[in-house]
Amino acid sequence: MEKKKRGMSITAKQKTAGWLFLTPATVLLVIMSFYPIIQAVFTSFKTGSSANMQWANPLTYNYSRMFADTIFQTAMKNTFLYLIIQVPIMLVLAMLLAQLLNNKDLKFKGFFRTCVFLPCATSLVSYSLIFKSLFATQGLINTILVKLGIFAENYNFLGTPTSAKVIIILALLWRWTGYNMVFFLAGLQNIEYSVYEAAKIDGASSWQTFWHITVPLLKPTIVMTAIMSINGTLQLFDESVNLTSGGPANATITMSHYIYNNSFGNGVANFGYASALSFIVFIFVAVLAFINMKVGDTRD
């Protein structure tokens, strides 16, 4: 044994060491993530009380069921509405903010960067609750708007379907723009200043510089932030649960929130159906990320 070991080449030794370092994380990942995922696949084909789950008859019952589920369709529409409206606005805002804060002559740069990033340090639940109390019928925003004479009487922001959706989008923008800005800022700092100087000498306006130099060079960052934001928005949960409780009348419920409701809401504990719904979300995320990567990939 000892002799054989001595015969190991340098490469073999390095490989062994590499695997050695990888093992703990891999083992944990398999036990904590992959095993539950596989179990969830089985669960998604079962029905009944979670104490005594039976194979569904037909096996795809949970999957076919969701096509008739109007609440899930509402949740899907809501989630995609957030996605389509919020993600583009947020990414453009983040890019503009990054551009502003990347300005060489800007004073108190560190202070402003901290300010923009600070919302990300807030817990999702706490900021949702703060938005909830801000926009409550007797809340600060209402009081200000009524005192200023803009509204005649208190408006039930969170109780009206359209305004409740708008507030969720506003909350998301507030919470996540700074987070994405940091990536853009890092991306911007990788762009050589000489490129901008050359453009300036050629007489490019700052608008042209932005669209023809900054944006193309930031493409990898844009693709990455877009994938992360799409992924995050499709799994949106805290805001729906804490800010609006999915209401009024499911007008703001998200897919993840509906999955949660099927597992723990109303004492239902319908884990089979909830797992099936989770896999649908998983497929959405995978497909969108794939499209995004294909679109963003400039190599032929």
Binding site: A68, D69, T70, P248, A249
Partner: peptide, 26 residues
Amino acid sequence: GNAIINAVNGSDLATELQNAQDQISF
């Protein structure tokens, strides 16, 4: 409860009740 909120906000109560009934039996 959802049917009531929708009806208060202006949708047709009979339709909402039918939806709610369908959703509950679902």
